[in-house]
Every structure is written in structure tokens, then in C-alpha cells.
Design a protein around this nucleic acid. Sequence first.
DNA 1: CAGTATTTACAAAAATATTTGTAAGAATTG
DNA 2: CAATTCTTACAAATATTTTTGTAAATACTG
Lengths: 171, 171
Amino acid sequence: MLEVPGSSKSENPSVEGVGPLDALERDIIAYWVQTATLLGYPRSVGEIFGYIFLSEQPVNADDLVEHLGISRSGAGQGLKALLDIGAIRPAHNIADRRDHYQMQSDLGVLVKQFLNVRVFPPLEELRRQRDALKETVAASRNPHLAQRFEKLLRWQGKASPLIAVLKSLTS
Amino acid sequence: MLEVPGSSKSENPSVEGVGPLDALERDIIAYWVQTATLLGYPRSVGEIFGYIFLSEQPVNADDLVEHLGISRSGAGQGLKALLDIGAIRPAHNIADRRDHYQMQSDLGVLVKQFLNVRVFPPLEELRRQRDALKETVAASRNPHLAQRFEKLLRWQGKASPLIAVLKSLTS
DNA sequence: CAGTATTTACAAAAATATTTGTAAGAATTG
DNA sequence: CAATTCTTACAAATATTTTTGTAAATACTG
């Protein structure tokens, strides 16, 4: 499923293309797959990022198809997902019409975009819903529910400093 | 799929058991389902927590089967998952042999257990893998890979203050 | 300690998410 | 601006996760 990125056969002395370097590269990709999984991304996204992390040159979708054995559309979608969170960035001025990408070396950009795209929007959606429920609970004149929501809002209050820390990373 | 928790028919004046209070309760459970999803838990876990959040009395697995329309084993597994992260706690001294649970009102306990059970272990596993890869990369004498790992470790350095903040919540 | 009730473990079924293949849409080049 | 290449969108196929049902294990009661 995984081939050697970046280096051509001539640079890789291992027999049958399954030498020590390949094993290391597989392990590194597996590491990124785990990282992606932890962040809620599918395996393929981790593989793609791993491949780009390994590759010395900017990478295009067809490289991924060829070396990771995934479909063209899977490659496209994965690249889009990584671009969305700023994990990779377009590499310009390449003598090839196809879009090429390379690793985003600025961690700040990655964290910022990830928070803005993947963390804050669902969090704000939850806050919106919570606010709406709070109104309805108040109107319901149900003392038990009112008490539960008091607790919920106290929780929210305690959590907000932490969210503020994250927000500060965004600026 | 959802029935009215806590309150018996006599307390609930709505016709056919589908009055305004029921709608609100469904919405509140839906809120917790979304929260659970955000944290990587399946729908059922969110429903169970929502039901316990709503319920005035401690809840047992059969209550969940009856009111949420889930299977007995699903109820058991969901309760276990919630117990693991400290979202609910056992309610003792109940005149019933079955295990009863209620909402964990101490947010501190919840955050602490959640971090210890769900966040830190996979993070440490990644660190372990990263350290192992670092060794292998150093041994490989591949300058490009070495450079990539330098960057990775610099990233790790920048992220560690944030992890330290989380760790401090654990104490 | 025998009998019953409850919980846990695990394989099968169902539901959900991911990946793929194809076709339509843009963009680029000559 | 026609032809070609590349990308995007979306339905079908595949893979994975979640839920269920049953059976084994454990704990309680009389």
C-alpha cells in the first residue's frame, strides 16, 4: 500500500524496494495516521500528510495515487481537508500544471486554522443551542430543569478561561 | 425513540405524552448527543448522559432501555463509558439491587478523569512512537528526514506549554 | 449454598463513515 | 476559442464503527 516517496530507486539501495528505509517511512506514515485519527480524521488523511511530511519535493494528487495506492478522488479530498486546516500549503512556481502541495512549516498557522475550522464552529453551535434551551427552560417553569441549567452554565463559566487560552492562539 | 424521564404521566399534563415538555427534553438530549459526538462518543452515550442529566432520580440501565429504546447491553456499555470519564457516578443506598447512577456534579472530577482516560494516554503513546522514530531517523543518516524531525520536535516544544496547562487541571 | 437477578463479554446485525468511480465543471494552453 | 488537463461533486461500493442479542460470569438473597 505504501511506496517510497521522494527518493528514486537509484537512491534506495534496498532489495525489492522493501529495505530498512521503507520500513522507517511506513512507520512515520503510521505515526501520522494515528495523529490524524486522534484529531478525528480518516486514515487516508493521515497517510497523505505523512507522505507530504516525508517528501522532499512538493507533492501532487497523482503522486499520492501512485505511492499510497488510493483513488484520485480520495487524494483530492484528503488534500482539501489538509489545506482547510493549514497542515499543508500550495507550492507555487512549479513547472507542472497540476496543483502541488508541501508541508506547512509554520505551526502557528496550522493551530490557528485548525481551531478556526474544526474546533470553534462546533463549539459555537453548541453555545447557540445551549442559549436557546436556556430560554425554553426558563419559560417551562420546571424547577428541576432550571437547576440543571444553572449547573450547566456554571460549568460553562469554569471552562471559558480555557477556551480563552485557545482563542488567544488564534490572534 | 425518546420518552419522558423523571416525571410520571400524572406530573405531565401534556396529551399522549407528547407535550411541550417532551419536546424540550428531546432537545436537551439532542444537545448532549452533539456534545458527545464532538468528544468522539457515539450517539447512544450522549442520549444516556442526556437522560441522566434530565432525571431527578438516580437512573438504572433498565430505565434507559425503557425510555430511550436502546438495548440492555447498549445501556450497560454507555453507562460504563460515562463512568470511566467521571461524567456520572454511582448512587448508593437505593432500595433496589440494580446499579443506579446520577450526574457527576463536580466538573473538576469530570475534566480530570476525561483527560486521564481519553486524552493523555493516546498522547503519550504518540510521544513514545515519536521518540522511537527519532532514534531510527538519527541512525538512518538521512539529512532530509533528520530535518523533518527537527521541525517536528520544535513543534512539540511549542505545544508542551498547552499540555502543561491541561496537566495542571489534573492535579 | 442453591436459586435468581444483574452485569459483562463477545459474535452477529445494523447503521454510519470512508473510499471509490464516474461524470460534470473549471482552468489552462496552444 | 477549441481541445485538453485537472479538479470537484456526488452516487455506489466498501470498510469501519456502533448496536444488538445471546450466553457466560458474577453477585446477591433467602
